[in-house]
Design a protein around this nucleic acid. Sequence first.
DNA 1: TTGTACGCGTTATCAT
DNA 2: ATGATAACGCGTACAA
Lengths: 365, 365
Amino acid sequence: MGRKRTKSGKIRLAEVAELAGVSPITASRFFRNPEALSVAKRTRVESAAKELGYVPNLAARALASQRTEVIGVLIPSLTNNVFSDVLRGIYDASEGSRYSIQLSNTRYSILQEEKLLRLFLAQKPAGLIVTGIDQTTESRAMLEAADCPIVQIMEIGPDPVDMMIGFSHYDAARAAVAHLFEQGHSRIGFVGARMDPRVQRRLDGYVSAMKDAGLFDQRLVVTTSTPTSVTLGGALFTDLLAREPLDAVFCANDDLALGVLFECRRREIAVPEQIAIVGFNDLEFMASAVPTLTSVRTNRYEMGNTAATMLIEAIDGRRPEQPVLDLGFKVVERQSSSSRRSDSRSAAAGASASNKMVALPSSHD
Amino acid sequence: MGRKRTKSGKIRLAEVAELAGVSPITASRFFRNPEALSVAKRTRVESAAKELGYVPNLAARALASQRTEVIGVLIPSLTNNVFSDVLRGIYDASEGSRYSIQLSNTRYSILQEEKLLRLFLAQKPAGLIVTGIDQTTESRAMLEAADCPIVQIMEIGPDPVDMMIGFSHYDAARAAVAHLFEQGHSRIGFVGARMDPRVQRRLDGYVSAMKDAGLFDQRLVVTTSTPTSVTLGGALFTDLLAREPLDAVFCANDDLALGVLFECRRREIAVPEQIAIVGFNDLEFMASAVPTLTSVRTNRYEMGNTAATMLIEAIDGRRPEQPVLDLGFKVVERQSSSSRRSDSRSAAAGASASNKMVALPSSHD
DNA sequence: TTGTACGCGTTATCAT
DNA sequence: ATGATAACGCGTACAA
């Protein structure tokens, strides 16, 4: 004879079905496809479930259906606030859906990513969100073979595995440099840290723009594989100053830009009169700094949110008409790179700045 | 007769067992408690598993064992970089263990927290990490009734549900104010945003310290329920200036402190000569700002990491001798609150500042 | 130390 | 639209 109450005291589907006077499978259908039931049974099951406080057992569901309702997310960093915005978008989109997020951190290692991918795929996720387009050959093969929708986020490029949402870091960097050209700058330095693939492409964009203008000089570029920080921005900028005279700096991200700003303040270099600064990502503080800092706005929250939304729709069988989505970017011009006279309040620091270029005695190099 | 190869093509425990020439249950034991096997069988199962590329089916495991290997984590925000540090600590600790993290965002709502808790508990998590000590009565009851270890993080207080790791926001605020007293300040403002329970306790600490010194004045306090930001720091500080003369500001977090710093720069208020600034959390940029900013260092990564480590140990039956852990804090004194002459480089801004107190004409209030 | 028998709660499949 | 039957892959309990 069948068991009545489960030993764990949990309400099972069978109990709900019994109370509703239907078979378990009918009750099961109610939760997955209510439309398939007659109105009468639908309401009976519904009230029975509510009365008993039934909560589906996801493990049993996963085992029986051979699939999970888990969306795997692979990102390279939990520290970087760029990713916290993306993540927020993803989590927001997952709420209200029946899918839950399984997050893992690749720490900027594509080998770690490959390992995690293998792990994720073994659990048959409903969908996958991966960062960037630089997977290992092995990872790429696994992704192609995966029988679930996949979204690559953060950048766009040729040859998507499945869906893709992001923007061109290369173009964004070119636009930032073009903006500095427009403001009359020519000795434009580049400061970059971490040098992950996306930062590398920003550097590539910078290099190409400078070369197009006949202004490229390798000595204007300072990079490191060290993780980014505000302090590091100051240090890299110091290196740059020691090498070459400059009239502007393009920073691969806003933390570096803030560090450069502070370093300028420390050295009494007027911004933007002596040196213009442009950052990347347009974090909140950029609009609030003194002087306000120009940056390239990227749509991070939207990227995560749209990626998860697209993914869920694809899982549910509604593939987007447009599998590759370019969310673009925008150069937000502020005081730090504006050749128009900044207003009196923000120009307070300026000391006796008037020369448009500044250099330190080159101590090394 | 039994099925040989599963239709989904996945390798099951039975296949591994067959290749190893043992029963399935022996193979099963190998993965959960290798010590229980004879060395001979252990190696046979091990190589069989490796050869077949076996990956356990977690759903089946969860269903059979009536428990999951999931650690639920409830935090109030994904945006706040305080939590990204904590999360990093948690994820780091979970790697290498067999537990995976299930993260949910309560958005600073204890009702949302209650809802999520109900959801989590229904899936029988192996353990739970929740933020703070201000749960609803209902949540509290569920936590008490939960049959898994639980860690409350971010603060400490009386009456832990189970384990607890954090520090006293009240004491930390008192220490920050005491530091400002030591530096000779008396008109000390408080700037706070979001006003979640922990910020509220910082305010409480500030109030008590000021009252103890006979210096409390309600007009020195400016708070808002608006989410924190650098820009908001500047705005709240502006409000404060319009009300009362000040010689120092204690900010409930570092973003606000940075905003205050920028606002001072905008208004040509010398820091620390005219106004001292103290922040909270000691984010990386504080040490890099000009002038460098005093803050209260909190051990966020350690909090997350230790919480997850403790939790996992408790799940595995090794409860900590000390279930409540105070990770403390430290007032890191920097230029923004130092009465000692700041060095020449960082004092560049100072204009003709010499008076130790600054006030704006009170336009309103 | 190893194995047998069975249950875990749900869904797929195939009927009706 | 609804139901009977048989998995889904593994762990528990108990026995040997």
